[in-house]
Simulated scan of single mutants.
Amino acid sequence: MQKIRTALLSYGMSGKVFHAPFISFHPGFELIGSWERSKKLIREDYPSVKSYFQIDALLEDDVDLVIVNTPVETHYEYAKKVLLAGKHAIVEKAFTTTVAQAQELAALANERGVKLAVFQNRRWDSDFKTVQKIISEKKLGDIVEAEFHFDRYNPLLSPKSHKETANSGAGILKDLGPHLIDQVLCLFGLPKAVFADIRITREHSLVDDYIDILLYYPDSRVRLKAGFFVREANPAYVIHGKKGSFLKPRGDVQEDDLKLGKKPNLEEWGTEAKSKEGLLHTEFHTDILRENVPTLQGNYYDFFDGVYNSISNNQPEPVTAQDGVHVMQIIEAAIQSSAQKKVIDL
Rank of each mutant, 00 (worst) to 15 (best):
W35H: 13
S337T: 04
I42P: 00
N265F: 09
P318S: 12
H149F: 14
A100T: 13
T320C: 07
K129N: 03
K129P: 02
Y237V: 05
V99N: 03
Y210I: 00
P27Q: 03
F29Q: 03
G86P: 13
H240Y: 00
A57E: 15
A7K: 03
I181Y: 00
V131G: 07
K163Q: 13
I213E: 02
Y237P: 06
G15T: 07
Y308S: 06
L8S: 01
S310F: 04
G241R: 04
L58G: 02
V230W: 05
A94N: 06
A109N: 05
E272Y: 01
Q120G: 04
V319T: 13
L187D: 08
D182W: 00
L296I: 03
K115W: 01
K39N: 12
L258P: 06
D142M: 00
K50E: 11
N121I: 15
A193R: 07
L190E: 13
K40Y: 03
A89P: 05
S275V: 13
P318A: 10
L31G: 03
F53S: 14
K192C: 12
L84H: 01
A7G: 03
P318Q: 10
G306A: 12
T98H: 03
A226I: 09
P27A: 08
W124M: 06
E317P: 06
I42K: 08
A166V: 07
P218H: 07
C186K: 07
P191R: 04
N167G: 10
P316E: 07
V207S: 01
R5W: 01
T6V: 06
V66Q: 01
E291N: 00
F119W: 14
S24N: 13
D302S: 09
G171P: 04
D56K: 15
E104H: 11
E268K: 10
I55Q: 11
G141L: 03
A79Y: 03
P318E: 10
S51G: 08
L116F: 13
S24V: 12
K163W: 11
P71Q: 06
L156K: 07
D305A: 15
Y78W: 02
L214G: 08
S310D: 05
V343S: 02
K93M: 09
F95A: 09
L206C: 08
L215G: 11
L157K: 08
F18L: 14
S338D: 03
G86Y: 01
I311Q: 02
T74W: 06
F29A: 09
D61E: 09
D256N: 10
K133H: 06
V144A: 01
F229M: 06
G261Y: 09
S34L: 05
Y78L: 14
S10V: 08
L215T: 04
V91M: 02
C186I: 14
Y46K: 02
L176A: 11
N313V: 11
H149L: 06
H19S: 04
L105E: 05
G141H: 04
L31M: 00
E104A: 14
N292P: 10
K80G: 05
L346N: 08
S161C: 00
D256M: 13
A236S: 14
S161W: 00
A166K: 14
D175E: 13
